[in-house]
Design a protein around this nucleic acid. Structure first.
Lengths: 207, 207
DNA sequence: ACACTAATGGCACTCGTGGTCAAAAAGGAA
DNA sequence: TTCCTTTTTGACCACGAGTGCCATTAGTGT
């Protein structure tokens, strides 16, 4: 669902003016520590500001809202997702291409696995975040819809692109939830198994 | 996605004590008028309280939050959904049974169509509401998961029930969004077409 | 030293939300 | 009628998220 944000700060255009006092990554880490200690709701923005050593007002220049903090720089990772889709072989069936890109998008280096899991657990088990996340998911879906539209010669808003986007998200969510509840399962396998379960459910041919 | 709330107030057990000053339906209607006039965000709870003629504090005894107002008494309609599922012939393939129940759940008497559409338009085009709605969707999904679990002899939390629930929601969302953007389309047709598009996408047999 | 620039952070304000509690408005019993 | 019980109401208060405004700060370039 998300790559860690790559932790790259968007290079300042000129070196003029007052230097920045913090970074997205710094805020994110300080906040995440507090969230796991006291819980998301009982951590105030004042707490996060104090922990980061920055004014409360400044936090809002890095993140649009408290709910956006756990997602990090998700927007940056969507560019990568777009590339993954574009890089799929054109002769692959559409559903296969989308599925492979989704799987690739959620492949993480082994050492990043634990933190990714913690992050997703926070997001998927905190009601406020669960709700807020649909806005991120919408961006993610848009990337898929665009790709499907391009390959089928339709508009992104048409039924087929939207359908594929929504269903792909449904598969990913199913896999993620299973991943969180089953300690030693591979996310990649779960994505495949979700897809297989869907085909099976609809009584589809083996592909 | 939702039936209008049936507008039934939960009968008071005894006629003692101070009588109620308003009802869910009254608040809902007053609020909806304001929402369409000034927009959701710029309508404050004070506005709604004033329009309904009750204290602001009282609103919270009828709805958990401002975001809950447009959904009305959705919880009550889920009971109906559960019955629709239970009423499907047992010899129907599972995917067919679920699909028919979803279609039936979203069938509305002709005269309720416009208001239902206005309500869904508000919910699906207001970011705050779009986000908040996932909590309602989760309840809706749980109903499906339970049914699938019961028919397949699994637990509601298992992969198959969760998968079917998520995908069913994806289909419904796709249909609803298409319904809102296409003035003269039937929701029922769109649900069928979404399902057909999914089967087609996966290269499934004709059923 | 001086101007310029960009980020910071304090202040004040609105609004949603929740806790507490006295007052209001009914019915029933003496 | 009068008092008691019951239940809802609504006022008051507190807290936290989010936002607009603006003086301050800390750099760079001349």
């Amino acid at each position: 669902m998300l790559t860690c944000g790559a932790m790259v700060e968007p290079v300042r255009t000129s070196a003029r003016g007052r230097p920045v006092a913090t970074s997205h990554a710094a805020i994110e880490q300080a906040a995440f520590t507090l969230f796991t200690e006291r819980g998301f709701a009982s951590t105030t923005l004042d707490d996060i500001a104090r922990a980061t050593g920055v004014g409360r007002r400044t936090l809002f220049r890095y993140f649009e809202s408290k709910n956006d903090i756990p997602w990090g720089r998700f927007d940056l990772t969507l560019a990568g997702f777009r590339e993954l889709l574009a890089g799929q072989p054109r002769d692959l069936p559409l559903h296969e291409a989308v599925h492979r890109a989704v799987v690739a998008f959620n492949r993480f280096p082994g050492d990043a696995r634990p933190s990714h899991r913690d992050r997703m657990r926070l997001i998927l088990t905190t009601p406020e975040l669960e709700a807020h996340s649909v806005l991120r998911y919408a961006d993610w879906r848009a990337v898929i819809a665009e790709y499907v539209a391009e390959r089928t010669g339709t508009a992104p808003g048409d039924l087929r692109p939207q359908l594929v986007a929504h269903v792909s998200l449904a598969l990913a969510m199913t896999a993620y939830e299973a991943w969180l509840s089953d300690a030693d399962a591979e996310l990649e396998d779960l994505l495949d198994r979700s897809m297989a379960a869907l085909r099976d459910h609809l009584g589809a041919a083996s592909s």
